[in-house]
Nucleic acid binder design. Structure first.
Lengths: 111, 111
DNA sequence: GCGATACTTAGCCGTATGGCACAGTATTCG
DNA sequence: CGAATACTGTGCCATACGGCTAAGTATCGC
């Protein structure tokens, strides 16, 4: 019954952490290396890397390694799955509003 | 530096669970009692109640008790905080796009 | 080549999360 | 009033999460 979307689930789990959300925000301005990003957060590199991996595993970023530097790039299009979910919610409750509307204008529909 | 919004954080944490997302979806069609909702999920009532409390604590729903029945109602306006965050992201990367645009059309900006 | 740099791997640790069972309380209904 | 209903409270449990340290690997730059 419940339409469990693994895709949406992963994206929301990834975004439900302030550090990861901030990484997304920073990458919105352009690609950056793991080291440069990590320097902005009050935690060790290994801890930070976990967030990077989470973001990548859930498709929010893409990373590539050149030499010893790993560069992170935002995958903006992935945020669309959140947009889509929000849009569906809106559709659902507008349907409901319409139904209530009809109940008022057409009293015969009332049971 | 990182703009940690507790409000946004709570809403995203609440939505990062499939059960809670499904509750939001169902409530989009109209208010429902805890019992009616719980019947749709493969878990015990106490477990389900935790999700209800989480949703309420993060402002996504409002609940009221009449007699022995607790009714849940969606607070649609709270989803706006997610919308707002997404909008901010879009603003950030559009700014970047504009900047790149200028670099192409006005070569003097290049270092 | 050797030191510095930039991750990466491994493992530990405390807390939070999401589930359970079981017992209790408060209403409602016959 | 007594049984059924609809939560509610308590406590337990396993796993996941987010942090850490310590040690390892792979470039890069002199």
């Amino acid at each position: 019954m419940a339409q469990y979307s693994d895709e949406l689930d992963g994206v929301l789990v990834a975004l439900a952490d302030p550090t990861r959300r901030d990484v997304v925000r920073r990458l919105g301005r352009g690609p950056q290396s793991v080291g440069d990003l990590a320097r902005e957060f009050p935690m060790t590199l290994p801890s930070f890397m976990k967030h990077v991996r989470t973001l990548e595993a859930n498709g929010l970023i893409r990373t590539t390694k050149a030499g010893r530097v790993r560069t992170c790039e935002l995958r903006r299009e992935r945020l669309a799955v959140v947009d889509d979910w929000l849009a569906e919610q809106r559709r659902i409750w507008e349907e409901r509003t319409d139904r209530l509307e009809r109940l008022v204008t057409d009293p015969e529909e009332q049971q």
